[in-house]
Design a protein around this nucleic acid. Structure first.
Length: 571
RNA sequence: CGGGGUGUAGCGCAGUUGGUAGCGCGCAUGGUUUGGGACCAUGAGGCCGGCGGUUCGAGUCCGCCCACCCCGACCA
C-alpha cells in the first residue's frame, strides 16, 4: 500500500477526550474514528490489524474443532423473554421495533439463538460434542462507554458455544478452549492471566476471565504469588481468620451516643472492629435487605447479588431505610422482624460481638449467633482485598488491574432446558445438552495490544497483528533515482510476499520517521540517496532504539524475513 | 443513574467590561528545502452544540435541552 493513497491521516495531537494511551494512539495513527459514545469506525489500518486478530482467532478455533457460522444481529425480543434474560440484561439490551411494532433486540450475545439452532439440528449423542462459533458485531447499551475501544456499545466479538452430552464432556471442551485462548493471546503478543470470575448475566456454574495485566485495566485482580490463585476481585475468596472461641456472655444494651460507624463504635467501646457486626442496607428488586458482616470486612455486592439471586441490587436510599423502620448507624438483625436478612459466614466464629440495638444511640454487647438472632441466608459475601490471606494457601493476596479480553463460561443445561435443546443418549433417553460459551472481545484485544505495546513515539505492533509488516520509507522522493529504487524495492518486497506500507510521499524525513514510529510497523526500511550510494537500505526494528543498520540490497529480503521471524518469537 | 468537567475551523486552543471571530498544527497553490515533525508567500475552511429569552446588538448574560469526556454501580 502506498501511503500517499492510504485513507486516514495521522494527527500530531490526540483529541482532548482521548485519555487512554491506546485510544490516543489509535486515533492519532488514523486507525479508528469515533462516531458516537462507544461507537467507532475502523479505518483501513485499524481494520487490517483487527482482521489479523480475527484470523488468528479463526485458526485457533478451527484447530480446536470449532466450526464457524454466522447468526443474526436482529433477534426477536420474545426469544429473550423465554429465557428471562430480557430482565437480566435490563437497559443493556438495545431494543427496537419493526414496522409491525414487533419488538426486536440487537444481539448482545447469542446463547438463545445458538441453542435454538442446536435444538433444531442435534438429535443424537452422535452429533455431539459440537463447537460452533462466529465473529460478529455485538450490541450492548453500556451505562458508560470508556477508554476508546476498551469499552464500547457496538463491538466485534468472537463467541463460541460448546454442546456436550454431559459435565465431563463440558469440562473437556472448556479445557480445550482455555488452551486455545492461551495460544491466541500469546500469538497476539499479549501475556494474559486466567482468573476465576463471576459469570454475571450470562449465568452458569463457573467461569474464568483472561486478563491482560495493565494499570489502565477496569478490573481488580487478586493473585497469590505463593500458590498461583488468581481471581477477579468481585469473585475472589479469602481465608477468613476465625476468631477464638469465647464463653458467651449475657446480652447487654449500652448507650453509644453519636457512635454510628464501626470505627466510632469500636473506639467508643474499646473493642477491635473485628469484634463488631456491621449492618448494611441494600435494596434488592424492590425490597429492603439487611446485610450483616463482621466489622473488619466489607460487603462484596456481586457475591451478595448472586446469593440473593436478584436482578437489581443497590444500596438502599436514606428514605428507603427510614421507611423500612431501620435505624441507620444502630441497626442489626437482633430482634428484627419483617425484613429479609443476609449475613456473611464471618459471623459464625468468635463470640460476644457488638451490634446495633435498633434504637438510636444504643448498641448491644455480647451478641452471639445463633443464640440472639437468626438470618435468612448465611454465606460468603465478603470482599477480598490485597493483604488478606489467600483462600488456598493463606499467603497474602496481591492486587493488580487487568483488561478483560476473554471470558469462558460453563453454562451447564440452563439454556438447553429453558429452550428444550435435547438429544437422545445411548440408552435412548432424552437429555438436555450441556453447554459452554467462550467470548473474546476482538476490538478490546486490539486496544489492549496497543496499551501493552507502545512507547512515547507511538505504537509498537506485535508483528502477528501489525497491519503491515514492513514500513518502506523513501527519503527525497523528488529525486528520480530514489523514487525509482524505492519503487523497485517496493515491488520486490511485495513479490517476496511481504506486506508493505510504502511511504512514497514527498515529505521531509522528520515527518516520515515520526509517522513510521506512530504507525508502529515492526520493521522500517529506509531508502535514500545515501543508502543508494552504499548500495543498500537502512533496516531498523520498531522496538529498537537508535539508528538502524545499512544492509546490502542483495540479501535484504532474507534479512527482513529473519528479523520478522524473531519478532514472532518474541511475541 | 449519582458526582465532576467540556462543547468556538479536520486536531489542539484563545476570545477582555456584550459591538458580528482569532492563533498554532493540518489542508490547497507557488517557490526554496530534504536523514528525525523545514521555510517564505498566497489562499480555502466557522449554524461559536441546539432552542428560547434579555438587549439596538449575544461566542460572551439568563433558562431549558442535547452531545461528549472523566470518577463510581455493569461487561467481551
Amino acid at each position: 500500500m502506498r501511503l500517499s493513497q492510504l485513507f486516514g491521516k495521522t494527527l500530531r495531537q490526540p483529541p482532548a477526550e482521548a485519555e487512554t494511551v491506546s485510544h490516543q494512539l489509535l486515533v492519532r495513527a488514523g486507525m479508528i474514528h469515533q462516531v458516537a459514545a462507544g461507537v467507532y469506525s475502523y479505518l483501513p489500518l485499524g481494520w487490517r490489524a483487527l482482521r489479523k486478530i480475527e484470523q488468528i482467532i479463526r485458526e485457533e478455533m478451527d484447530a480446536a474443532g470449532g466450526q464457524e457460522l454466522n447468526m443474526p444481529v436482529l433477534q426477536p425480543l420474545e426469544l429473550w423473554q423465554e429465557t428471562g434474560r430480557d430482565k437480566a440484561l435490563g437497559d443493556t439490551l438495545f431494543t427496537l421495533k419493526d414496522r409491525r411494532q414487533r419488538p426486536l433486540v440487537l444481539g448482545p450475545t447469542h446463547e438463545e439463538v445458538i441453542t435454538l439452532l442446536a435444538r433444531q439440528n442435534v438429535r443424537s449423542y452422535r452429533d455431539l460434542p459440537l463447537l460452533l462459533y462466529q465473529i460478529q458485531t455485538k450490541f450492548r447499551d453500556e451505562p458508560r462507554p470508556r477508554g476508546g475501544l476498551i469499552r464500547v456499545r457496538e463491538f466485534p466479538m468472537k463467541d463460541l458455544y460448546s454442546f456436550d452430552v454431559d459435565e465431563a464432556g463440558l469440562n473437556l471442551s472448556y479445557r480445550k478452549m482455555a488452551e486455545a485462548y492461551r495460544r491466541i493471546f500469546q500469538r497476539c503478543g499479549l501475556p494474559t492471566l486466567m482468573v476465576e470470575a463471576d459469570s454475571g448475566a450470562i449465568g452458569g456454574k463457573g467461569s474464568h476471565e483472561f486478563m491482560v495485566i495493565a494499570p489502565t485495566g477496569e478490573n481488580e485482580v487478586l493473585t497469590c504469588e505463593a500458590c498461583g490463585y488468581a481471581a477477579n476481585a468481585e469473585r475472589a475468596a479469602f481465608a477468613k481468620s476465625p476468631l477464638p472461641p469465647e464463653e458467651p456472655m449475657p446480652l447487654e444494651e449500652v448507650p453509644t451516643p453519636g457512635a454510628a460507624t464501626i470505627a466510632q463504635v469500636a473506639g467508643f467501646l474499646g473493642v477491635p472492629p473485628s469484634q463488631t457486626y456491621k449492618a448494611v442496607f441494600h435494596w434488592c428488586d424492590g425490597a429492603p435487605v439487611l446485610v450483616t458482616i463482621r466489622g473488619d470486612l466489607e460487603v462484596n455486592e456481586v457475591k451478595l447479588k448472586n446469593a440473593l439471586k436478584c436482578a437489581e441490587l443497590r444500596l438502599a436510599t436514606e428514605r428507603e431505610v427510614l421507611a423500612a423502620g431501620l435505624v441507620a448507624g444502630y441497626a442489626s438483625p437482633v430482634g428484627l422482624k419483617g425484613i429479609k436478612t443476609v449475613a456473611d459466614d464471618s459471623i459464625t466464629t468468635g463470640a460476644n460481638f457488638v451490634a446495633g440495638a435498633n434504637r438510636e444511640g444504643y448498641h448491644l454487647k455480647q451478641v452471639n449467633y445463633p443464640r440472639d438472632f437468626s438470618v435468612d441466608l448465611l454465606t460468603d459475601i465478603a470482599q477480598a482485598q490485597a493483604g488478606l490471606p489467600c483462600p488456598q494457601c493463606r499467603a497474602p493476596l496481591r492486587s493488580t488491574r487487568g483488561i478483560e479480553v476473554g471470558h469462558v463460561f460453563k453454562l451447564g443445561a440452563v439454556y438447553s432446558q429453558k429452550l428444550g435443546a435435547n438429544f437422545l443418549d445411548q440408552e435412548g433417553r432424552q437429555r438436555p445438552m450441556v453447554m459452554g460459551c467462550y467470548g473474546i472481545g476482538v476490538g478490546r484485544l486490539l486496544a489492549a495490544a496497543v496499551e501493552q505495546n507502545h512507547d512515547g513515539a507511538g505504537i509498537i505492533w506485535p508483528s502477528p497483528i501489525a497491519p503491515y509488516q514492513v514500513h518502506l520509507v523513501g527519503l527525497g522522493m523528488d529525486k528520480g533515482e530514489v523514487a525509482a529504487s524505492a519503487a523497485e524495492l517496493y515491488s520486490r518486497l511485495q513479490a517476496g510476499g511481504f506486506e508493505v506500507l510504502f511511504d512514497d510521499r514527498l515529505e521531509s524525513p522528520g515527518v516520515k520517521f515520526n509517522d513510521a514510529d506512530l504507525l508502529g510497523l515492526p520493521v522500517r526500511l529506509t531508502i535514500s540517496a545515501r543508502t543508494i550510494k552504499a548500495q543498500g537500505a537502512e533496516l531498523k526494528r520498531r522496538r529498537d532504539a537508535g539508528p538502524g543498520a545499512t544492509v546490502p540490497l542483495a540479501g535484504l529480503l532474507a534479512e527482513i524475513k529473519s528479523l520478522l521471524a524473531g519478532e514472532g518469537q518474541q511475541a
